[in-house]
Amino acid sequence: MHARVLVTLKKGVLDPAGEAVAGSLRQLGFEEVRGARIGKVIEIDLGDVPQAEAEKRLREMGQKLLANTVIEDFEVVL
């Protein structure tokens, strides 16, 4: 089973790289861009695990290591 964990910066935490990307997009003519936030995608190969169990384990992974929950949120996509 393959899963993805999406890690994003919490709202309100400064993301200078995201702001730079938004600025560049606007310069390239995408004037509608109001903002950009940069996150991480972690692709995980789980082997043979039942879906419910996988989801629970992935949440633990997110809490324990993949995201720093002081500044980041995460989402599990199976």
């Binding site: 935490v13 400064l14 200078p16 790289a17 730079a20 720093n68 002081v70 500044i71």
Partner: peptide
């Protein structure tokens, strides 16, 4: 990161 101190570290504002 280990919680021995509170808060978090971010990339420098200059990137």
């Amino acid at each position: 990161e280990s919680g021995l101190l509170p808060g978090a570290m971010l990339q420098n504002s200059s990137r």
